[in-house]
Amino acid sequence: MRIYELKQKEVINVCTCRTLGCPVDVEFNCENGCITAIVVPGPGSSCFCFWGPSSEYVIPWNCIRQIGDDIILVEIDEKHCCKKS
């Protein structure tokens, strides 16, 4: 799977059955080339960062439960995964 394909899938938290959005970025380990986390815009985020502070969910790879054709199921505590940027 390519990152482009990953970014077109909707992320759903199985703990709350809430849609979080689509990934906008990934984090990876430079030493081994493995993806370590996906980044999804958080609550109150907009496409235009200059309109105010934004937040994002940084979801560790080990919290991903399943990747389907259209969705990515994750199991996270949204309060602990949301970071202000």
Rank of each mutant, 00 (worst) to 15 (best):
C30I: 14
T16C: 08
E56Q: 14
V24L: 08
W51G: 05
P60Q: 00
C47V: 06
V26K: 02
C15G: 06
V14W: 07
V24W: 03
R65H: 07
E5V: 09
N62Q: 09
Q8V: 04
R18W: 06
G33L: 14
K84P: 08
C22W: 08
V14L: 14
K83W: 10
W61E: 00
L6H: 07
S46Y: 10
V39S: 05
P53V: 13
C63V: 03
L6I: 14
V39H: 00
F28S: 01
G44N: 09
E5T: 06
S85L: 15
G44K: 06
V40P: 01
D69L: 15
H80V: 06
T19D: 11
I12T: 09
G44P: 13
V40G: 02
C47G: 10
V11T: 07
N13K: 00
F28G: 05
I72E: 02
C22Q: 11
I71T: 15
D77M: 05
V26Q: 00
R18C: 09
C49E: 13
M1H: 13
I38Q: 03
W51P: 05
C17G: 04
N13D: 11
S45H: 08
C82P: 03
T19S: 15
I59A: 00
Y4T: 10
C34R: 14
C49D: 09
I38M: 04
I71E: 08
W51Q: 10
D70I: 15
T16V: 04
C82M: 05
Q8L: 13
S55P: 07
K84V: 13
C22N: 13
V26N: 02
C63T: 07
I35D: 04
H80G: 02
W61F: 09
K79P: 03
G42R: 00
Y57Q: 01
E31M: 12
L6T: 05
N13F: 05
A37M: 04
F50L: 13
V40L: 00
